[in-house]
């Protein structure tokens, strides 16, 4: 595989940060008094969620720039980041479920935060279903940019509506929340690590999208 400077730098950064993060999470962070070791899922879960939001924000911004500049590079950026975001959102839902089972004794809870991620997940699955059904390259880019924008501005409304809905039907309250200083620092480092991972995955996918584009162009050229 051809070398790419940004990807190499991010890769080596992760090579250092990832093991260190795992060391901090499993060895340095103290065991939570009530929840026990399971609480360590929290560091992963929250970091993945932040990564997903970063990726979807990138999709939103790239979509706007695409509609403005009409350059397909921005569509590749939008779809690459949406894919990274979708991967992370999927993992957020799975780790959330694995957290809810031992702590709240249920596999799923209609917590506003989880619900927001689930609906976002549906929106971006729809985004890719839609992309799969359009042959024209430019139309695909233009229309999915519209979905990328519409879907993203829904996040605060969904968040607010589900929160208000829950306040009427209280089911489970979120325990804990009070992290001690060591836990807080581990959390910060974990966030940083996963944001680097998000950027790394994005560039990795983006490079693939660019080369796919070039292949399509060359194919057309050889057919003519």
């Amino acid at each position: 595989m051809k070398k790419n400077k940004t990807i190499s730098i991010l890769f080596f950064l992760l090579l250092v940060m990832m093991p260190l993060d795992f060391y901090l999470i499993f060895k340095v962070a103290p065991t939570e008094r009530i929840m026990g070791d399971v609480q360590r899922i929290f560091y992963l879960h929250v970091s993945l969620a932040s990564g997903a939001f970063l990726a979807f924000t990138c999709t939103f911004i790239s979509s706007i720039i695409f509609l403005w500049k009409k350059n397909l590079v921005w569509d590749s950026a939008a779809s690459a980041s949406a894919e990274t975001g979708l991967l992370f959102a999927t993992l957020v839902l799975i780790t959330g479920s694995l957290w809810a089972r031992p702590i709240w004794n249920v596999w799923w809870t209609w917590d506003p935060r989880l619900l927001t991620v689930l609906i976002l997940w549906f929106i971006y699955v729809g985004y890719f279903l839609f992309r799969g059904g359009i042959a024209d390259r430019f139309k695909k880019a233009q229309y999915s940019a519209v979905i990328g924008i519409i879907g993203y501005i829904d996040i605060p409304v969904i968040r607010y509506a589900t929160k208000w809905w829950k306040s009427i039907h209280p089911l489970l309250t979120r325990e804990g929340g009070g992290l001690n200083p060591v836990m807080k620092n581990v959390m910060f480092f974990s966030l940083a690590t996963f944001l680097v991972l998000t950027v790394f995955l994005f560039f990795f996918r983006f490079r693939l999208a660019r080369i796919e584009e070039r292949l399509q162009k060359l194919k057309k050229l050889t057919e003519d």
């Binding site: 026990g36 070791d37 399971v38 899922i41 992963l44 879960h45 780790t95 694995l98 957290w99 031992p102």
Partner: peptide, 8 residues
């Protein structure tokens, strides 16, 4: 509950 932790 270590199974959930390792699983995640």
């Amino acid at each position: 509950n270590w199974g959930y932790l390792v699983g995640a």
